[in-house]
């Protein structure tokens, strides 16, 4: 009897939590299939009839295809650079003892403590000076710089737990330090790398502040900026914003679904021997 009550309580808590977590998503999903007029009449109404035509309309007529491509190119490039450079830095900092090792580590990590609002003006000026303002390359570099400390922080602790004997064994097997990184460290660290890939992808895919300050051209907007275009001073096209949100969320959901197992492995690595 106690066990049944316990399970019922657990089920209730999980149901409430799921409703809390998934509620906004389901609401936005329903709104994405309704027109702004319908939403104004009834905020929580069901999408009857469902306006599926809003998706192609948003994709082709409202420029979402361009925003999506811009976001994809910036995020994929930034995450690729972050993963490789972050892994190299983490491997180096955890594996090699050299003078200033901890100093370099804390220098990288200390960048986390500055809120973006403090650095954004200096960053803006720097990008202008180097001709990278209002360019996707500039935005990509900023994203790499902003996310690198967290990436190195997560990866360093994982790389440090790889037993040193593996590197010695690879050296005895005849491999160079470069090969050892690619053939031993990198594959072993895949769970942690997947964690950083998914975290960085989600954070950068949704990033708004740097994009809104550093990008002005319509053709260079990323998805969050594109969605913002439908927010006017007087009138908001809520229906189209919801459709845009759904288009933006789909890749995140796919990546999470693909990497979630690795993400959990990476986050709990070492917790259970």
């Amino acid at each position: 009897m106690t066990a049944i009550l316990g399970r019922a309580f657990l089920l209730l808590v999980l149901t409430l939590y799921t409703a809390f977590a998934a509620g906004p998503f389901i609401w936005a999903a329903m709104m994405s299939l309704r027109t702004t007029t319908e939403i104004s009449n009834s905020h929580f109404g069901l999408p009857l009839p469902a306006h599926w035509e809003k998706f192609p309309q948003a994709w082709f007529n409202s420029n979402y295809s361009v925003y999506f491509a811009n976001s994809a190119s910036v995020v994929v490039t930034a995450v690729a650079i972050l993963t490789i450079v972050g892994a190299m830095a983490a491997h180096c900092l955890s594996r090699y003892r050299f003078a200033g090792n901890r100093f370099v580590y804390f220098l990288i990590f200390s960048a986390i403590i500055f809120p973006p609002q403090i650095t954004i003006i200096a960053l803006f000026q720097t990008l202008v000076n180097y001709g990278l303002y209002n360019s996707l390359v500039g935005l990509t570099l900023v994203y790499v710089a902003v996310q690198l400390p967290l990436t190195v922080y997560i990866l360093e602790s994982f790389f440090a737990r790889i037993p040193g004997d593996l590197f010695d064994a690879a050296r005895m097997d005849g491999y160079s330090e470069w090969s050892i990184f690619w053939k031993v460290s990198f594959p072993i660290a895949l769970p942690a790398l997947a964690t950083t890939v998914i975290l960085n992808t989600i954070l950068l895919w949704n990033e708004f502040l740097y994009a809104v300050v550093l990008i002005t051209d319509e053709a260079k907007r990323t998805l969050p900026l594109g969605i913002q275009r439908f927010m006017g001073d007087q009138l908001e096209d809520v229906g189209m914003i919801a459709t845009g949100l759904m288009i933006a969320i789909i890749p995140v959901v796919l990546i999470y679904a693909f990497f979630s197992e690795k993400l959990i492995q990476g986050m709990t690595a070492g917790a259970v021997k």
Binding site: D165, D168, A170, M172, V184
Partner: peptide, 12 residues
């Protein structure tokens, strides 16, 4: 060639 205490087998 060396055999290590921890075996040092490549886990992947």
């Amino acid at each position: 060639a060396m055999v290590f205490q921890s075996y040092a087998l490549y886990p992947h």
